[in-house]
């Protein structure tokens, strides 16, 4: 998994835009650091690249995401909007309690899957009727 170019010191975004060998339409993005006003654009760029690369089901590994502000949550809403016409969905996996709380308070619980691990996130996306493969 490569680190995307242009990411700031506060946020690292790890994402490999190449299609997975199994041909699935799942894309995994790992977020490390702080997602706020200063890093919102980087995150949105990564999300757009993931969708442009054929991603329909985006797994967001947030285990090492230390902080998310309203600007960061707005980046997630951009991702939701990108996936909506594709009938896709994103799963926020292993978020720290305050990140989970921020997403829930913002009312994104019904728009995103919030899971305690990546595996659970994958399972939730499968259960929601979405097919991870084309």
């Amino acid at each position: 998994m490569a680190r995307l170019s242009g990411t700031s010191l506060d946020l690292e975004l790890h994402f490999d835009p190449a299609e997975p060998s199994d041909g699935s339409r799942e894309r995994l993005i790992r977020l490390v650091g702080r997602l706020e006003q200063a890093t919102q654009v980087d995150a949105e760029k990564a999300f757009r690249e993931a969708v442009a690369a054929g991603g329909r089901f985006v797994i967001l590994d947030c285990a090492k995401l230390e902080f998310i502000s309203s600007a960061g949550i707005r980046a997630f809403i951009v991702l939701i909007k990108l996936l909506k016409p594709l009938d896709g969905r994103a799963a926020v996996c292993a978020p720290q309690p305050h990140v989970r709380q921020a997403l829930e308070f913002s009312g994104l619980k019904s728009l995103l899957s919030i899971s305690s691990s990546i595996d659970e996130g994958r399972a939730t996306l499968s259960r929601s009727g979405s097919r991870l493969t084309p």
């Binding site: 309203s70 707005r74 809403i77 709380q101 921020a102 308070f105």
Partner: peptide, 17 residues
């Protein structure tokens, strides 16, 4: 304050939306 701050950030997101 942490809980209140989360409410403020959430409120901000919804207002902008």
């Amino acid at each position: 304050s942490i809980l209140g701050g989360a409410l403020i950030e959430a409120c901000d997101v919804m207002l902008r939306t």
